[in-house]
Each structure stands twice: as structure tokens, then as C-alpha cells.
Design a protein around this nucleic acid. Structure first.
Length: 993
RNA sequence: GCGGAUGUGGCGAAAUUGGUAGACGUGCCAGACUUAGGAUCUGGUGCCGUAAGGCGUGUGGGUUCGAGUCCCUCCAUCCGCACCA
């Protein structure tokens, strides 16, 4: 039977592609690798139990279009897919059900794979990676070991191996190196002392230099999940996943020293072709700020000092107090006896306020004087030291110098505690009741800084601090080292064991992978250990002895920080990626994914890449050259409105005692809201009750009604119930369908619009099961085909935008594909094309379309391509064009968007199956692109007076001639002869008289 | 508060360098054809107005012969960060 039926061939081609490995990317040495490479990458999904909804494929479709387009352009395209398969949801499910996360993960991946394949993506499935496979995470563990065995040399500004560090220690002691990290944690020793160190001492000495290290730190502890969360996994004081409360807790944690790379991570952004929003977020997250470190000697212990970080050393003469964070280390020692108790009390209260409370109410000003005084480095004045919870322990030194006149928070604090406010920059006005925070103005009241502009005062102040040894210029970063351990099961085990002397050591490379042990339950142990504490035999065997393994596992972002490298050489047993493959594929040319990974995954990946580069393991500059964020497709929830009414048949039969619920169509709801609840009593509401075929009215009878139902009371507010969107079409509720959906609707009454329909309200929000607004691709593919869905998702609008899903528009692209099909099947019969030569009109359509599609894909404007193809199809239909010369090239142009249809037609055109994807992009013949005619505005002395149409091929002299000969000059230039005629090609003619 | 983005018909949107605003698609209206279907085809559809005509790209202003597009002002919505010294 003829006609366009995608189900006839879509599955066929998908199977063909899979069986023939049509989209296999060639690695160096394989046939095809001589072509230029192009690497198109999707952010791989976490395979959740819910499967894909229509929002998920949006980015995959776009990247697939780019991949397919690049194949036509002659590239060797790497376009892989895999699964980020370690993660919390599978673990939570495992805790609840006892199911091994491996099983649920495997099932979910199977479902994802099936759904992805039904959409016709051109992935090279041979390269699939799964982060939870031991073959994969062995290399995640291996990279961790490299981090564990490296340190960061500030002089060379790169990561280096520990061997080089210990060599340096042996030659020059601890003074021989400058390393990233906190020197306060590190021992000072000479080369001679190093030589005498035992192995244990050496390991202890080296530990605080490592790029993967353990430390006691305040972490976000989530009791409900039994694990530590990173800052970006905590939103508003609750966990991003699950929404459980999160508290601050001091714990020993594995950390990665990402801060060592802060400056390079910041500077690298400049050369990336990424959305500004993402780059800006990363800059913000890294938070570089220039300023100075200033030492304030303590009055009673002049050998000790409080060091502050400030970006405003120019305001030093305006300091009226110092403030330290409640968590500040030497706080207790700082206090005078008189104030010790009060301070302790304050600190206790401050610490017990949860992070959320502290953030929620920044307005409340609190603090406590410590009794201590420091000495001002320039004036020698006494500066009181306070403790205040507006000072953050984690930023700078945990101590600030307060300049109330020029800082909003200091100002509020000083007003509250009646501390002095000393203006030192012109611009402060005490009458305004606010600080003057502009970074401009002239300095006064400030000794040697007087008269300087802020900018110069900053340099001068720093110079003075450095001269007197009381401080120095300093650059501070907001970025914190990344916590790298999770107290949970479903993640990569850290390849670490603890030797008899208690030191943490990496396991030998030959013992990788360290595979997850089987355990009986996935919860933390009774005594609060991570789930791995349940494993029996979780011990490292070395020389016949057994040592305990680390119990925490890696965070979710470990595996995703390097997966794009594994795709290059996915099954290499000897190396995480071979040198040749890494060198060949290089950087990812085009990376597509959600903006939610802006500061997590995308920053960690860059960090790992820079680290691997320092070790000489990768050869590019950055992992992802070009990045694009696809927007989210939102659901359109359908809402029905329910009121409780008392009602009966006819006036006499009202049963006052029985309130029944009634579902009312949207318009009645609006009337009720407008008129208030009384309107059901006071005003006529006419509508049909669905199954009784009578009118519901109030007070007044209607002549047409056979039986009357009186609503006499509305006892409750209108309640809104979200209903399954698959039972709603264009806001019209399928009442029979909804009756079967839920019991509460089964015997419900529905008040209909006069035309007999029941309308739902709508709300646009994230797709989620609980809102019943999820639309899955499966039914749509089944009904309209994958090609239609692909085209439609692109047609929806600009890729980056957030947009609501609306299934009804799908019919438009279905029609387009059917029409395209018909160009090849005249009269909707058999495949038949004529061999006639194309007319100029047809060639104009053809070449215009080839160019338009090419240009639009190049500039990543995916939506306008669909329109262009629709217009071409409609125009060729109107011309009744069924010519091979015109239509064959269009099949290639269509292929990235509708690959199944293209394959089908390509085969019918007589080509070998599966070859359309590599057919060269048709050449554009420019001569067919020009317009027939162009309208020129005609102006006299720059004032437009008229317009004239010229042939598009008309030259400037020809146009001048026509203008001169026309009555234009006589009419608008009052007959004056033209001094000069200026022709702007395609734009305008200006006559100067 | 800081940073980023976006405002165009009933709806999704287009207009790539300033040059006929609203292409294309939905939705709606009318018609054709049909053993009424969520099929196909044709025409119409920015707003006001019977019409002539007028008004129209968030607001107000500016540059220009000409502004959705460039400049300034304000407003609204969304996203990210947020006591970062």
C-alpha cells in the first residue's frame, strides 16, 4: 500500500545501521582516519528509572544533526553515547528495595538504549561507556592514584609527580619547593633531616602536598542520605536530590586540590567558545579577587598577629575594628578572661544555627567583643577584635578588617554596636545613613595616602605594607578544594588502604580495578560507617598481610570528569586512552548539554584535563572547545477544578445534607473566581452535566432545560487537580478516559461548556511524574515516526531556549514529511521520478535550500532549517516537480533531520543501502541564488522621495541612467540637474542636487 | 545586592550586515471532497475600523531618509551567585 508510513521503514533502517556499524568512527590506522576529525559529544545521561521523556532527546537530536551534517562535509565523525551510571537514585532505590543497584542500573540502561535507538541517532555504539563498569572505573581509580601521587609546583606552575618532590626535599629540604596548599599544615625540615626520616615520616610529610589528600574539614552532612554533599549539591540548605536538611559537620574527608589550578581554570575560559553565561558562572565560582594581606599585631602578644585579607587596602586608615569568624582557630586563645565565656556562648549559638538559618537571615546583626586589641600597622592605634558570624571561616583568612564608612556590612555592624565610623574616601556622607562603597574618589584622613585616587592608594598602601613587612599584595580565590569522598555504596571505591602505621597509601596499579564488594544491605553501618563497612574481607592483601581499604567511594562527578577521553579508545586494556587515539581526536569540537552542569561537571572536567596535561597524558589545551546549552522542554500540566456543591433535581428535591463534588470546566472556574463563591447561588451558570444531559443552574429556570439541578451551596474553595496529560487534547478533557484513570473520577459529575466540551486549565512547569505532565517519545514515535519527532523538536524554537511542550504542533511536520514523500511518489502511488531537466525556478528553490540549510546548521540555528525544508517542499509541490535532478540532492539535505526517510528514498533512488549518510553535501550554484528584482529607495539629498524596482542584475551605471531618464528628478528635485548620483547596491539611490 | 539572559499575533516563532515586520507551523474561520476522520486539498487570519484609513516588535527618549535590529532610560520575567571582606 503506497503512502508515507514511517513505521514501514524506520525500524528497518535502525537495524541496518546497527548491524552494519554504519556510524563507526575510524581510529588512527583504520580506514577513513585520513579524513579530518570532528568530535561531537552529548553530555551522557544518568539512566533513571523513569526513562526518557520528550525533553531529553532535544540536545541529542541537535548534536546528531551536527554529526550527520559533518559526515556529509567529509569529516571522520566521533559521535558516541554512554551512561553516567553511578549515582544516588539507584542507591536510594537499593536501600528501599534491597535490589542491587547494578541490576536496576542495567535494566534502566537497556530501556534508555532502546529509546535512544528508536530515535535514529547516529552513535557509534561500539564505543559506549558505562562509568559503573569495572573496565571503566579501573581508569577512574587510576587517575585518582595519579592525583594522589602528585603535587603542585608553584614555581613551574604545574602538577608534578611526588618523586620529583621527594628528590627536591632530599636536595634542599622543605625550603626547596613552593607548593600549592596551606603551608601551615606542613613540616619545616632540612635536606639532612629528610635523609634521616623513616618511611612513615616521609609519608606523613608528603601527605599535605598531595593533590588528593585527607583533611578535617567542615562539610555538608546530610543525615537522611547518610553522606556528605558538595556545595553544588546543596540548594537553600537542603539536598538538591530529595530535599533533605543538610548540616555543617567537621569530618575527615578526601579532597582534591582543585584550588591549585584556580588561575589556569580562570584564564583558560577566555579562549573557549562557550556561552557567556557559563563562563561567567565559572568565573564567579572561581572568584578571583586582588587585594592585600595585612598583619595586625596583637596588643598583649605582639609576636602574634591576626592576618586579614582585604581588597581595599586604601581604606586601612578607616579601620575601626577587626572581626573574626566564629569557627576561627585561635579564637579561644585570643579572648581575654573577662570575655571568654561570652565569646564561647556566642560561638556556640552561631555554630548551632544551621547553614540555612544563617543564610536566610543575613539582616540580623550579631557579634561579641573578645576583649582583645590589635595594633594598626600604620597608625599604631588600638583596634578592638570582635567575633561576628558575618565573617566566613572558609574565605580569605577568616578575619576581616572592618571599615564601616566604606563597606555596607561593616557599616551596619558599627551602627549596631556603636563603633566608630571613620570616612577616608571623599564621597561618604553621614547624612545618607549608608556606607560609601564606590571604588573611586580621593583618599583623605589617611596620612601618606592623602590626596591619592583609590586606585593609586591601593598600590601605595601595598607598597608600604611590603616595605614594613606588615603585609603584602595577594590574590585570593573563592574556589574551595573539592571534597572527593562519599559515604555510600554505589560509586567507585577509592583505591586506598591504610598501612599498619595508619598512613593512607594507594594500591598498586596491577591491582586495579578495585571492584565494589558485595554487601547485604546498602545502608550505613550501625556505628555510622559507610556501607562498605558492611563488606567482609574488604582488605588489601600485600605480602601476605591484610590492610583495611578506605570505606568511602568517589562522588558522582568522578566518572564523568574524563569519559569523553575513554570514548576515543573505549576498550583499551592497557591505558585510559592510547596516545595515538588521544592525539588524533584531541579536543571535543562540539559539546552539547544542560546548563545545570556549568560549575560542577564542566569545571571538574577542565581541572582533570589540566592535571592530565601536566603529566603529559593529554595534548590539547582544554577538553571542550565549543559548548552549547540546550534549553529545557517544560511540561504543560493540565488542571481540572473541583468544587463541593449541594444539589438536587428540581427545587423541591434539594438534599441539603449531601455535599457532592463537581468538576467544573475552566470557564466556570474563571467566572467563580471573578464573581466570588456566591455566584453559584446568585447568578445563572449554564452548562451541561455530562452524563445526565441536563443543565445546572442557580435560581433561575431555563426554558430549554428538561430537568433542573440546583446548586445551592458551595462549601469549599476550588481545588485544583493535575490530571494525566495523555487524556487531554488541546485542553479538552477526554472524560471517558479520565474516569478510568483514577477512582475519584469514576463516578464524578462534570459541568461542561455549552458546546459540550470540558476544558482544563494549564500550567507550564518542569516535567515530572507527580505532575502527570510527562510526555514520552515512545507513543509519538509509534504514531508519527522518529523523523517527525526529530524535526518537530528542532522546529519548536531556538535550541537554547526553555519552551513548553505541545504535542499538537507535531502534525505540521508530519504533513511536511508526507508531502516530501509525495514528491517522490506522484499521485501517492509508486516511486517514480522523471529525468527531465530542471527549470530555473526549480533550481532556484533547490540551491537556495541547500545553502540555507548549510548556513543555518553551521550557525546552529536548527529551527529555521525545518521551515526552509517545508517551504521548499511546498513550492516544489506547487510546481508539480517530480524530477530526479532536483529531488535527489534534497534527500541528502534532509538526511540530518529525517535520516530514516532519507535512507528509504536514497535506496529507492538506486544507491546502496546505508550510504546516504556519507554522500557529499550538494554543491551550491551561486548563480541560482540571486533575486530577480530589487527595490531601491530613491532619495534627494538624503531624503527619500520614492522607490523604484530594478532588475537584480542591474549595474550601478544602468541604475543611474534609469534614474536620470525617469521623471523622478523633475518631480522630486524640482527639475534641477543631478550633481551626483550615489547608488548603494541593493539598498538605495541618493541624488545630490 | 551582583552577574547572565529574554521581552515580536491566541500560541511556538522568523526577519544572518539597519531596508516591505509577523516567513514557517499551530490554533481559529470559511469552503471542497468524503459510508463524519484526530484524513486530504483550497482560501482567509497582527490590532482597531463597514470602508478609506489609522495603529503596531515591553516603556519612554535618541541617532538615521529608514530602527524589532544601533545608543540611552525605565519596566517585567527567567536563570545563576549571594554576608566572598
Amino acid at each position: 500500500m503506497p503512502g508515507y508510513h514511517p513505521s514501514d521503514f524506520e525500524k528497518k533502517w535502525q537495524a541496518h545501521w546497527l548491524n552494519h556499524k554504519t556510524f563507526r568512527a575510524a581510529n588512527p590506522g583504520q580506514p577513513g582516519a585520513d579524513r579530518p576529525k570532528y568530535y561531537v559529544l552529548d553530555m551522557f545521561p544518568y539512566p533513571s528509572g523513569a526513562g526518557l521523556h520528550v525533553g531529553h532527546p532535544l540536545g541529542y537530536i541537535a548534536s546528531d544533526i551536527v554529526a550527520r551534517y559533518k559526515r556529509h562535509m567529509g569529516y571522520n565523525v566521533l559521535h558516541p553515547m554512554g551512561f553516567d551510571s553511578f549515582g544516588l537514585p539507584a542507591e536510594q532505590y537499593a536501600i528501599q528495595t534491597g535490589q542491587h543497584p547494578e541490576n536496576t542500573t542495567r535494566d534502566n540502561i537497556a530501556r534508555y538504549t532502546e529509546q535512544l535507538q528508536s530515535l535514529g541517532f547516529s552513535y557509534d555504539w561500539d564505543r559506549e561507556v558505562r562509568t559503573s563498569n569495572a573496565d571503566y572505573y579501573r581508569w577512574t581509580q587510576w587517575i585518582f592514584l595519579q592525583l594522589f601521587n602528585s603535587w603542585y609546583d608553584l614555581d613551574a606552575n604545574r602538577a608534578r609527580s611526588l618523586k620529583e618532590l621527594t628528590d627536591a626535599f632530599g636536595a634542599g629540604g622543605s625550603a626547596a619547593v613552593r607548593a600549592a596548599g596551606d603551608d601551615a599544615d606542613r613540616a619545616v625540615f632540612t635536606a639532612g633531616q629528610w635523609q634521616m626520616f623513616t618511611e612513615h615520616q616521609r609519608l606523613e610529610t608528603v601527605a599535605p602536598y598531595r593533590l588528593a589528600y585527607q583533611t578535617e574539614t567542615y562539610v555538608n552532612w546530610c543525615p537522611a542520605l547518610g553522606t556528605v554533599l558538595s556545595n553544588d549539591e546543596v540548594k537553600d540548605g537542603v539536598s538538591e536530590r530529595g530535599g533533605y536538611p543538610v548540616e555543617r559537620r567537621l569530618m575527615a574527608q578526601w579532597m582534591l586540590r582543585i584550588t591549585a589550578f584556580a588561575d589556569r581554570l580562570l584564564r583558560g575560559l577566555d579562549q573557549l567558545d562557550w556561552p557567556d553565561a557559563v563562563k561567567e558562572m565559572q568565573r564567579n565560582w572561581i572568584g578571583r579577587s586582588e587585594g592585600a594581606e595585612v598583619r595586625f599585631a596583637l596588643e598583649y602578644r605582639p609576636t602574634d598577629a591576626l592576618t586579614v585579607f582585604t581588597t581595599r587596602p586604601d581604606t586601612l586608615f578607616g579601620v575601626s575594628y577587626l572581626a573574626v569568624a566564629p569557627e576561627f582557630d585561635g579564637l579561644d586563645a585570643l579572648c581575654t578572661d573577662e570575655y571568654r565565656d561570652a565569646v564561647a556562648q556566642y560561638v556556640y549559638a552561631a555554630k548551632n544555627r544551621s547553614e540555612r538559618d544563617r543564610q536566610a537571615d543575613v539582616k540580623t546583626i550579631s557579634g561579641q567583643f573578645t576583649g582583645a586589641y590589635a595594633t594598626h600597622p600604620f597608625t599604631g592605634a588600638r583596634v578592638p577584635v570582635w567575633v561576628a558570624d558575618y565573617v566566613l571561616a572558609g574565605y580569605g583568612t577568616g578575619v576581616v578588617m572592618a571599615v564601616p564608612a566604606h563597606d555596607t556590612r561593616d557599616y551596619a555592624f558599627a551602627r549596631h554596636f556603636e563603633l566608630p565610623i571613620v570616612p577616608v574616601i571623599e564621597g561618604y556622607d553621614s547624612a545618607l545613613n549608608e556606607a560609601y562603597t564606590e571604588k573611586s574618589g580621593r583618599v583623605f584622613n589617611s596620612g601618606f595616602l592623602d590626596g591619592l585616587e583609590v586606585k593609586h592608594a591601593i598600590t601605595a598602601a601595598i607598597a608600604e605594607l611590603e616595605k614594613t613587612g606588615q603585609g603584602a599584595g595577594r590574590i585570593n580565590f573563592r574556589l574551595r578544594d573539592a571534597i572527593f569522598g562519599r559515604q555510600r555504596y554505589w560509586g567507585e571505591p577509592l583505591p586506598i588502604y591504610y598501612a599498619a602505621d595508619g598512613t593512607a597509601r594507594g594500591i598498586a596499579e596491577k591491582d586495579l580495578p578495585l571492584t565494589l564488594p558485595e554487601i547485604d544491605e546498602y545502608k550505613p553501618t550501625q556505628d555510622g560507617n559507610p556501607p562498605l563497612g558492611r563488606a567482609t574481607d574488604w582488605k588489601y592483601e600485600k605480602n601476605g598481610a591484610h590492610f583495611p581499604f578506605e570505606l568511602s567511594t568517589m562522588p558522582g562527578w568522578a566518572g564523568s570528569s574524563w569519559y569523553y577521553l575513554r570514548y576515543m579508545d573505549p576498550s583499551n586494556p592497557n591505558r585510559f586512552v592510547s596516545e595515538e587515539a588521544e592525539k588524533y581526536w584531541g579536543e571535543v569540537d562540539f559539546y552539547l548539554g544542560g546548563a545545570e552542569h556549568a560549575t560542577g561537571h564542566l569545571l571538574y572536567s577542565r581541572f582533570w584535563y589540566l592535571f592530565l596535561k601536566d603529566l603529559g597524558l593529554v595534548t590539547g589545551e582544554e577538553p571542550f572547545r565549543k559548548l552549547l546549552n540546550q534549553g529545557m522542554i517544560l511540561g504543560r500540566s493540565s488542571i481540572v477544578y473541583r468544587v463541593n456543591v449541594m444539589w438536587g433535581l428540581g427545587l423541591d428535591s434539594i438534599d441539603n445534607s449531601i455535599a457532592r463534588s463537581l468538576f467544573i470546566s475552566r470557564d466556570f472556574k474563571e467566572r467563580l473566581v471573578k464573581g466570588g463563591m456566591e455566584s453559584l447561588e446568585g447568578k445563572r451558570i449554564i452548562g451541561f452535566l455530562e452524563h445526565e444531559q441536563v443543565r445546572l443552574e442557580t435560581e433561575e429556570f431555563s426554558e430549554q432545560s428538561v430537568e433542573l439541578i440546583h446548586a445551592i451551596d458551595v462549601s469549599t474553595d476550588i481545588s485544583e487537580i493535575k490530571v494525566d496529560v495523555s487524556r487531554v487534547d488541546n485542553d479538552v478533557l477526554d472524560i471517558n478516559g479520565i474516569r478510568q484513570w483514577r477512582d475519584e473520577f469514576n463516578n464524578a459529575e462534570f459541568l461542561l461548556e455549552p458546546d459540550g466540551r470540558f476544558l482544563c486549565g494549564a500550567e507550564v512547569e518542569k516535567m515530572s511524574k507527580s505532575k502527570h505532565n510527562v510526555v514520552t517519545p515512545d507513543d509519538l514515535v509509534e504514531k508519527s515516526g522518529a523523523d517527525a519527532l526529530r524535526c518537530y523538536e528542532m522546529f519548536l524554537g531556538p535550541l537554547e531556549q526553555y519552551k513548553p511542550w505541545n504535542t499538537s504542533g507535531l502534525s505540521g511536520v508530519s504533513t511536511f514529511l508526507r508531502r516530501f514523500w509525495r514528491l517522490f511518489h506522484p499521485e501517492d502511488g509508486d516511486f517514480a521520478l522523471t529525468e527531465e531537466a530542471a527549470t530555473p525556478a526549480e533550481l532556484k528553490i533547490l540551491h537556495g535550500t541547500i545553502k540555507k540549510v548549510r548556513d543555518d546548521v553551521e550557525r546552529l540555528s536548527f529551527n529555521t532549517v525545518v521551515s526552509a525544508l517545508m517551504i521548499a517542499t511546498n513550492e516544489l509541490s506547487a510546481l508539480n516537480c517530480h524530477k530526479r535532478a532536483v529531488l535527489a540532492p534534497l534527500v541528502i539535505v534532509l538526511e540530518p533531520y529525517a535520516p530514516h526517510l532519507a535512507e528509504e528514498l536514497w535506496a529507492k533512488l538506486g544507491h546502496a543501502p546505508g550510504t546516504v549518510s556519507t554522500a557529499p553535501w550538494p554543491a551550491v550554484e551561486e548563480k541560482y541564488l540571486v533575486a530577480d528584482e530589487v527595490t531601491y529607495p530613491l532619495a534627494v539629498n538624503g531624503k527619500v522621495r520614492s522607490e523604484m524596482v530594478f532588475a537584480a542584475t542591474a549595474t550601478a551605471p544602468e541604475i543611474e541612467e534609469v534614474v536620470r531618464a525617469s521623471d523622478f528628478l523633475a518631480k522630486y528635485a524640482e527639475g534641477k540637474a543631478a550633481k551626483k548620483i550615489i547608488v548603494v547596491p541593493g539598498r538605495m539611490v541618493n541624488v545630490v542636487v
